[in-house]
Design a protein around this nucleic acid. Structure first.
Lengths: 211, 211
DNA sequence: TTACCCCTCGCATCAAGATGTGATCTAAGC
DNA sequence: GCTTAGATCACATCTTGATGCGAGGGGTAA
């Protein structure tokens, strides 16, 4: 079994050395590079085309360019790399910023070295591991509020809205629903009253917003 | 330490009994109810107000109402419950549907009983655990494609779009930007040409889509 | 300097949308 | 039986939106 090519970008010497010692001593890994800053790492990646880490540990809080800011550059130079964020922060926005930028795992620095090792193996197998508290934040992102506020519209009104949002004109909507143009107008009128809006634009916006 | 009140909804008798035996025999848990269907479980929850599971294991594939469909009803009856989905499926849409409905964890049935137990403990502590392959799918959801396609619009055109998407009429946009109504019209005209669209609706949709 | 693009504005026209008033019919609820 | 609400349709009017044609001023790159 070929060892996993691993890179580390971490400015804190204590954490860096501890990772280096632990992971470097594991035959499952080959520590191909250890950087103290984003700038350093990017320069080396750009210079040495043979340096192809498969997985990397990336600190968020770095002097100079932050880890999150650097992700796009890293992905550009090495598209196939799997990035594991390592951080003391658990703020939602940082988590999402990192994930959106292309990180595939997000670990709290408080976890054990063994957990980090396992996360690397997991990521390399095509999976992802998140610290439980971070995973919870990610999950909550999907169901922020159980606002199923579907709007106080009747089912027929929803059909009308559907047509409008799909880009149909009143006339087309009338044809599609098999009713007259004036009826579509009447429905729209009522919908506007109920939703307290007064233009197609707002209707489309409001409808699309809660999707 | 008070045991965690646990409920299980699972139609497969083999899996159900295996969960019941393993988790029921663990002093950390108190198995307060085991149902074979959503209907069964909801009826009991509705009938017995003292039945308040803290965490539940929920199968997705159930006869009758599916697990995903049932989540809203469960949350309605017991808002505080933490739901762990247990499933053989790992399709992205099911995963996201479950998370959006309010599940807070999603496990493959192939994982060990010990993992399930740990997931329950993690969830009860306010965390979340996802099977690695599932976590990866969730993560990929955030960075599907690095499409930063901002559109070939000029900055002024972006301002116009901004107004329109905000629900303003041409007239209001003109006021806001301090230009004439006709100028707004001209901008819109050009924007439509460049984007190859021909209605306000499409503009709003396209703009909102890439956000 | 010429050419080109962007922002600005005006006019004209036709299609589409917003809104008011009013009417009929049906199903649900009191 | 009466009331209420939703769905249906009609007519009228005014506002918006879509689009074509034309034009002047500012900036930039060939």
């Amino acid at each position: 079994m070929k060892p996993i090519a691993l890179a580390i970008v971490e400015d804190d010497p204590i954490i860096r050395e501890s990772l280096r010692t632990f992971l470097g001593g594991d035959p499952q890994f080959e520590l191909v590079y250890t950087a103290v800053s984003m700038e350093d790492f990017l320069t080396v990646l750009d210079t040495d085309a043979r340096l192809i880490p498969e997985v990397m540990l990336l600190d968020i809080q770095l002097p100079g360019q932050s880890g999150i800011e650097g992700i796009p550059s890293i992905k550009k130079l090495r598209p196939g790399i799997d990035i594991i964020m390592l951080t003391t922060f658990e703020e939602s926005d940082k988590i999402f910023a990192a994930l959106c930028a292309g990180a595939c795992s997000y670990l709290s620095k408080r976890v054990s070295l063994v957990t980090i090792r396992d996360a690397i193996l997991t990521v390399h197998r095509g999976g992802s591991y998140m610290s439980p508290s971070i995973a919870r934040k990610v999950v909550e992102h999907f169901a922020p509020i159980p606002k199923k506020e579907d709007g106080p519209l009747t089912s027929r009104q929803h059909e009308i809205v559907e047509c409008i949002v799909d880009g149909l004109s009143y006339k087309m909507a009338a044809d599609k629903l098999g009713i007259s143009l004036d009826t579509v107008r009447t429905h729209i009128k009522h919908i506007y009253q109920v939703l307290e809006i007064n233009s197609k634009g707002e209707l489309i916006r409001r409808t699309l917003d809660k999707r």
